[in-house]
Amino acid sequence: MTVVLARVDDRLIHGQVTVGWCQQLHPDRILLADNAVAADAWQARVYASSVPPHITATICSVAEAVNLLCSGPADERILLLTGSVSAMADLVRMGAPVTHVNLGGLHIAPGRREVLPFVYLDELEAQSLARLLASGVSITAQQVPGGREFVVDEALVREFLEP
């Protein structure tokens, strides 16, 4: 399987993904790796219903996603989604073939501070980003194709953790 986009977005499957990125990247499958959504049949149904009919929707746990990514057909194009940085870091740690991560939207919430206009993090999430970078994954933040792209590097994460 080829991961054409590995995106962290706390809105999960929504218009920026199904219209913006899918029209640009033409994935065969949207793979949402989210333990909580996968365990809730109603949530899984709601999010799956957001996927255009010509794209396969798969909603599963992080562990199941790793298995799928490592065993699926080589020519299948995957748009991989998680709702948190830690889930994406877990995917990479468990062997998912991800070399670049797109931060698409992590919105304001208690305990989070602004890093970029659409990226708010708490310390644990920043540490997960640091782990991803240390494992050789590159990271940028970009909401939609053609939108402004921000490089997320060690210096940015360090500055966040040690202001």
Partner: peptide
């Protein structure tokens, strides 16, 4: 349909 508002309303 299919956007964050629709998903949130259903949930």
């Amino acid at each position: 349909h299919g956007g964050s508002c629709a998903n949130a309303a259903m949930l």
